[in-house]
Amino acid sequence: MLLNASEMSRLVRTILSFWSTSLATEFEYKLNFLIELISTIGNLIGSIFILSLFYNDGHTLGGWTWSSALVVLGMYTILEGFTTIFLQPNLSRIVRHVQNGTLDFVLLKPVSSQLWLSFRLFSPWGFPSLLCGVCLIIYGSIKNETQFFSSSFLISSLLVFSSLIILYNIWFMLATTSIWFVKVWNVNEVLRSTLVAGRYPISAYPPILRVIFTFVLPIAFLTTIPAQGILGIASIDWIIGALSITLFSLFCSINLWRYALRFYTSASS
């Protein structure tokens, strides 16, 4: 559905007002600010240290050199940042909305409820991860002598973008199930733990896990394939596969949400 100019400006204003109030809420609690910042930096140092352990005696991981594996870690760190900024605060909130019946207020607003629930909150604490992820990718690419602004730049940007969309869709679909099952916190936790596997190239895992991480939980499309795209070594089949999964998952998440709302009973008063 195409939006006209005034609808588009209303949408942009709405999202900006969402984020400004979200930021204001975060800054209400000063100590929390400090704790989140320390936790982000600590996580990042830990990730680089673990990766370095695999390489400090000259080994390679699944055929990936240290510098190219850094690009995979960079992708993972970007996804971590994206999760902290949008997915964790918003999609975890859906469960609470369903439990408390406050989803009513969202459904009564003249904006897409999926858009509201996905972008209502904004946590700035994911930005250090996002920035570090980008730095790792740039560093790894330079070490690999990748031509950054070549023709593959568009493809690699597209693959990075599609990995964000795929991750979002998986989270959103899981959160949608709360309409039926109400409490689905654990599913989100399991998902986040599983995604940790995306820190390392998919070829570093045994064959059975490779199949699972490609066709069941598409972790390969979240980090390894975008990293291959950035390094200019992604095959056309995988690129088409990644884009198809992106569109398919988007289609599923939109329609699952619409379908689920037919079963929404709202919490009792």
Binding site: S17, A24, T25, Y29, T102, D104, F105
Partner: peptide, 25 residues
């Protein structure tokens, strides 16, 4: 709904009103 609220708990009502103004264009 007397028993549920839409205002943002940690912020002044004016902030919630700003969001609603944007939502309703």
């Amino acid at each position: 709904m007397g028993q549920k609220q839409q205002l943002i708990w940690d912020l002044p009502p004016l902030d919630s009103l700003k969001v609603n103004a944007a939502v309703y264009g």
